[in-house]
């Protein structure tokens, strides 16, 4: 009992900081969205939530957000994992890839978005190059499928996956693969029955990070996305900075809904990864 109280006292400063900064801001935002705080004409209650979810803009935005996050995460993971598996056995290749990946990681998404824009826009490098050989490219920037947005995310996140998976491959994975080979497993079987199951926890962890980040990020779809539909973060920012008094409550409401979706995704991930980790570490399911 005494120990527990001492422990509680010891973590109190850290806890207070987290609660104040994170919980405080979130709580105040939640209060604003309910019309309980801030300079607003929104009536007390769920009016702001009703207004923002009413009409096709929210549904279309949600679907677009989920589309961008799912496709970007899937492509980044597939490319990153494939590259890691291809590069793992060549020391120079691995060094070069890690160097290039690290080169890209500190570049902000905003700069990445501008670069992708210059490359993929209607008047961009790619379109001009294609035009000289007589090919007309479809719209890649501000298009309904958010190709440029997804391209930017994949360009930025695939190296991140590569680095995480290369690190995971440095563990006992190679030894288990050797054992599998001596037991008669062909290379394809080794990959399917040993390598990928052993990498699953790392891959899932990095996937949920990318999914949650891309779901909530604003600057890339703001720069490269179309005018309609707009993904939820852009919608939230526009409502939040709108001229009307009710905009603030609505913007915060959308932001909180994004948070709820991200948390739901994270929970689903935790369930899935606990099963995967349990299988790998031997903990009971």
């Amino acid at each position: 009992m005494n120990h527990r109280r001492t422990g509680l006292l010891l973590i109190l400063p850290a806890l207070a900081t987290v609660v104040l900064l994170f919980g405080g801001g979130l709580g105040y935002g939640f209060a604003q969205s309910l019309g309980l705080a801030g300079f607003t004409d929104t009536p007390v209650g769920l009016a702001a939530y009703q207004r923002v979810t009413d009409g096709p803009a929210f549904t279309d935005g949600l679907l677009l957000s989920l589309w961008i996050s799912t496709v970007a995460t899937g492509l980044a993971v597939a490319i990153g994992v494939a590259a890691a598996l291809a590069l793992r056995h060549t020391a120079p290749g691995q060094r070069a890839a890690t160097f290039l990946a690290q080169l890209g990681l500190p570049v902000p998404h905003l700069i990445g978005a501008v670069a992708i824009g210059l490359l993929l826009a209607d008047s961009g490098l790619l379109a001009r190059a294609a035009r000289t050989v007589g090919v007309a490219l479809p719209a890649l920037v501000a298009d309904p499928h958010a190709v440029a947005v997804i391209a930017e995310y994949v360009w930025k996140e695939a190296p991140f996956v590569l680095i995480v998976v290369l690190a995971a491959l440095g563990g006992p994975v190679a030894e288990h693969e050797r054992v599998a080979a001596t037991l008669g497993a062909r290379p394809r079987q080794v990959l399917r029955h040993v390598t990928l199951p052993l990498l699953a926890p790392s891959i899932l962890a990095v996937a949920v990070l990318i999914f949650a980040f891309t779901l909530g990020a604003y600057e890339v779809p703001a720069l490269l996305g179309s005018a309609y539909p707009q993904p939820l973060p852009v919608l939230a920012y526009q409502r939040f900075t709108a001229a009307e008094l009710s905009g603030r409550a609505e913007g915060v409401a959308i932001a909180l809904l994004i948070a709820v979706i991200a948390v739901a995704a994270a929970l689903a991930y935790t369930g899935a990864s606990r099963r995967a980790v349990g299988r790998v570490t031997g903990a009971r399911r």
């Binding site: 001596t182 299988r279 790998v280």
Partner: peptide, 15 residues
Amino acid sequence: RDLGVVFQRPLLFPH
């Protein structure tokens, strides 16, 4: 090669 190998460490597949 039709063989079985036992290494110094058991290296059982943890999954």
